[in-house]
Amino acid sequence: MRAVFLAAACVCILCVAAICLFLLVNGLPAFGKIGPLKFLSGSVWRPGSGAYGIAPMILGSLYVTAGAIALGAPLGVLTGVYLARFCPRRARAAGRAAVNLLAGVPSVVYGFFGLVVLVPAASAVFGGSGKSMLTASVLLGLMILPTVISVTETSVRAVPEACYEGALALGATHERAVFFAVLPAARPGVTAGIALGVGRAIGEATAVVMVAGNQPVIPSGPLRGLRTLTANIVLEMGYAADLHRGALAATAVTLFVFTLAVNVLLALGRGKRPA
């Protein structure tokens, strides 16, 4: 029996190793041919004329992720706290079911929702096509909600009751006890939830492609369209060849490094938590 478990574990680890290996084998040569600095900091992406600069896509990914967190994190944390400590028991079950449903909706459905609801709405309010950094941020903000909500709820509920009672015993109101005693105690968990949200937002491709506009230029404002790293790969991989294909693999390497950085930061933060 032990051998079965071992084999299963080995398959998992092999998969990760294989992904890393093939990503690097395919992507690194392009780094060399284009020049790492030129590739990462170049602001022109025109594969037809040999210009491979992914700075617009790096910034695009960072912008929409930041936007998604700015919108989704406060909303998600507040909702999680509400489910954990404010809402009546019956409403909690309904709320949780809704959150789980939200987590199960496929990306492409989110994208479709963005396309038929958010894009026209943005267009009506702000003018233009409606496909923009803002629209993509709002959509991604919605998509990270289930993660942030459920992790927040779980960690708030995991805080010992003694913390809450201690605050009440000092004459604090329920609100103050929850937000200033219990929530700080749950902070490591909440931070982890937000970091998972960052990971999800930066790695999302399908939904973003449908609402972001996808121009490979550095956006000059939140109402301009942009292209993310993921979108760059999804849009062009189908027909790319030679160096173009390598440059897309190198884009994937860059994306991989970003998600790795999020994970490492998360692990470091976890290690530093006081006992």
């Binding site: 605050a167 009440l168 015993a169 000092l170 004459g171 006081p274």
Partner: peptide
């Protein structure tokens, strides 16, 4: 009432914050 009647619990239950903020909480 709870301001006038303080309570100390069985297991020490300091809040996960600074010493100063713990005392200043009330």
């Amino acid at each position: 009432l709870r301001r006038r009647v303080g309570m100390v619990f069985q297991k020490p239950n300091p809040f996960p914050m600074s010493i100063y903020d713990n005392v200043a909480f009330g």
